[in-house]
Amino acid sequence: MIRHLVLFKLNEGVSRDEPRVAAGARGFAELGALVPEVASWECGWNVTDRPIAYDYAINSSVADTAALGRYLEHPAHRAAVAPWAEFATWVIADYEF
């Protein structure tokens, strides 16, 4: 199995209450059910307020690297990620477990 972790940091001056950000979070909340390769899916807003903290996280898993590739190329994934480029930056980690 491959764990796919993504941490998002909202850009300076961007609030999670903005309609575009709220819509982006809804898109991610729905994404796991739309992509057949996804074995597990969790996402949500950070509940702590620390200077080093990121704002939003996705914790998901897929069967293997081939499934990860299909997930990343899936149209629903591309559509869900695209709006975030306007208001956030992110880091990822993919590891076997």
Rank of each mutant, 00 (worst) to 15 (best):
K9M: 03
N46D: 08
D94S: 15
H74Q: 11
G13L: 15
A25I: 12
C43A: 12
T65I: 10
I58L: 05
V62S: 07
A63Q: 00
V14D: 08
W84K: 10
Y71L: 02
L5Q: 10
A80Q: 02
D64C: 08
C43T: 04
R70V: 06
A57K: 05
D55A: 07
T48M: 02
S61I: 00
A25W: 09
Y56G: 02
P75I: 07
E37H: 05
H74D: 14
R26L: 13
E12T: 03
F8C: 07
R16W: 13
V35N: 04
A63V: 07
F8D: 03
A93T: 14
G32E: 06
A79K: 05
T48A: 00
M1F: 08
E37W: 11
H4S: 02
L10C: 09
P36M: 13
F97A: 07
G69R: 14
H77G: 14
A25R: 14
F87Q: 07
R70H: 03
D49Y: 12
I92A: 09
E42P: 00
E73S: 12
G27T: 12
A25S: 03
V62H: 06
Y71G: 13
V81A: 07
E18K: 00
F87C: 05
W45N: 08
A39S: 04
R16Y: 04
G13W: 15
E86T: 10
L7A: 15
A76Q: 10
F87R: 12
P83H: 10
R20G: 09
W41G: 06
A66E: 11
V81W: 12
V81F: 10
G13M: 13
V6W: 12
A76H: 14
V35Q: 08
Y56H: 04
I92E: 11
A33P: 04
F97Y: 09
V47M: 15
N11L: 14
G69P: 13
F8I: 01
L72F: 02
I92Y: 08
V21W: 02
I92T: 13
G69M: 01
A22G: 01
A29E: 00
F97H: 10
A63T: 08
A63W: 02
L72Q: 05
P83S: 06
V14T: 01
A79T: 06
L10T: 03
S40T: 02
F87K: 05
D64V: 01
G69W: 05
G13I: 15
E12I: 06
H74T: 09
F97S: 14
S40N: 00
A29Q: 02
A82N: 11
G27M: 09
D94W: 02
V62L: 00
A93K: 10
L68F: 02
V14L: 04
A79N: 12
V38E: 00
E73G: 13
R16E: 11
A93Y: 11
V62D: 00
A33C: 15
R26V: 15
A88S: 14
F8A: 10
V21S: 00
A25P: 04
L31Q: 08
S40Q: 06
A53W: 11
F8R: 04
A25M: 13
A22R: 12
S40I: 08
